[in-house]
Amino acid sequence: MRVGVVTFPGTLDDRDAARAVEYAGAEPVSLWHGSDDLKHVDAVVLPGGFSYGDYLRCGAISAKAPIMKSIIVAAEHGFPVLGICNGFQVLAEAHLLPGALTRNADMHFLCTDQTLKIENNSTMWTNGFTLGQEILIPMKNAEGNFNCDDATLHELESEGRVIARYVGVNPNGSRDAIAGITNKRGNVVGLMPHPEHAIDLLTGPSKDGLTFFTSLLHSMIAG
């Protein structure tokens, strides 16, 4: 199985994302923002970083990149997409996921290991977790404050589309302590913290993050 990892100008975590794909047992394929060629990959990861220097709004310029045109069309047909941190911001700006990620409530750049509770284990990226499982993965962002209007929040909550929530003190002011969400179909997932940094105890606080990537393999094989 081939999993694309997109590099935008200013992307930081593409290598770690590719490494996580490899650890999970799939072949990482490097994709470039300026091309619309998905190179026949079976899924895509939009990694973290500061694409386009966070100019205009985080993820706003990347959301209009040629590669995103192909990803948006594919995602609407069930193609699996995981957006991590800046990748989540890109998915929100591309309207593949609702809401927006705004400045952290206390203005601080957060860099910490964060406990999350898995609240939906039926998506293509979370099916390997048990419901209610608590995981520990790194988080590092300045614009991780999930915002949306009341109607959207109600829709997300009533449809069980919050995939993970922050445990303990809400670190950034996100509505309902939301750390990650999915689209209706469960193929597009956005997550603010970084599972790709938690796949090996040598370099991360746990191996919990690897399950996002093995979940994908499982759903592709089962599906």
Binding site: T102, R103, N104, A105, D106, M107, N145, N147, G173
Partner: peptide
Amino acid sequence: MLKPEILDPQGQA
């Protein structure tokens, strides 16, 4: 402009 209901921590600072 950010909508009135959206927190503006930069403006607050």
